[in-house]
Computed example of a mutant assay.
Amino acid sequence: MPTRRAVTGRSGEPRARFAEELRLLRTARGHSLRQLGDRLGWDWSLFGKMEKGETVGGPEVVQALDTHYGTPGLLLALWELAVSDQTQFRERYRRYMALEAEAVSMWHFAVSVLPGLLQTPAYARELLASGGLHGAELTQQVDARMGRRSLLEGEGAPQFRTILSEATLRTALRDVGEWRKQLEHLLEIAERPNLTLQVLPQEAGLHGLSSTDVWFLRLPDARTVAYTEHGYGGDLIEENVAVERVQRAYDATRDLARSPTESRNFVLRVLEELPCDPST
């Protein structure tokens, strides 16, 4: 699998950076736009417009390009940056997403909402709709979020540890059937060798991350950055002393969490507590 490409070092403008990466990947393969169109089944003129920055395309074509070039999740992350440059994302979140695409390992804590990389389409849709998205924009963001899950798939996928507060697993979707599918999805991905899932029990009480969702990214240059977020914003932390302070809070929280085996059994119990599916 190709080494993850560094996102920084070229154009700093998201839309131009996305177009530049598309152009570089195609020319490195020695393909013309027509050849690319023939291989992927899209009109070659679409790729030409994307490489000129006239359009960013949709998540389906970008995901196909990620697969074609062997860059799982990278182009989708850049696409989200290009889209977000015109919509609601803040600059710090844009930089976080760029760093996420090149991370070699990730770890995370959730206060009340499952991380996007572990969400099913129904979960993502209900969550994003609750934040005010609707119509085509909502569908576009759900598709992009689903595409980003490829970051955790494949031979070169980074190691990922997530600690979910019990509240995360007690806050169900309105549709019981879809909530069942979400819990089943968690159980399935918890079996992957690169993913560790833990649950922080309610009885653990207050702790250093009681009101803070946090992500840590280990980068190819051995740096670690952190991103803390709440419902209406977030902060990217890159200074070593500040990252270490948040890391200590994370480590203390992890010590309170159930083991991976106990956590899987807990998710299974939550699933078994759901009302029976009348369709079965």
Rank of each mutant, 00 (worst) to 15 (best):
V176F: 00
Q88A: 12
V104Q: 02
F109T: 00
L187G: 05
L271Y: 10
E153K: 11
L114K: 02
G73M: 04
L118T: 04
R17K: 11
A98V: 08
V62T: 01
G41N: 10
L206Q: 13
G12T: 15
S11F: 05
S263F: 01
V225L: 11
D251P: 13
L219M: 02
L206F: 08
Y232N: 15
E54A: 14
G70Q: 10
E155D: 14
E272G: 12
D221T: 06
Q140D: 08
R26E: 06
R125M: 04
L127M: 14
V104R: 08
T261A: 14
V83I: 14
E244T: 13
R125V: 01
N240K: 12
L75P: 09
G57I: 05
T27I: 10
E239M: 02
Y227M: 02
L152C: 06
D255E: 15
F89H: 10
A82D: 01
L36P: 06
D213I: 00
K52M: 15
L74E: 15
G131F: 07
T27K: 13
Q247T: 11
H185L: 09
A122K: 05
G37L: 08
R5A: 09
A190P: 05
L187P: 06
P72T: 04
E244L: 11
L200K: 07
Q159V: 11
L24N: 09
S279H: 12
T71S: 03
L24W: 02
G208P: 09
A103F: 01
G48F: 00
A16P: 00
S263V: 02
A77I: 05
T87P: 06
F160N: 04
S263P: 01
E166F: 05
A124D: 10
R223Q: 14
H230A: 13
D251T: 15
R148M: 11
T120V: 03
V56T: 14
R223H: 12
V104Y: 02
L33G: 11
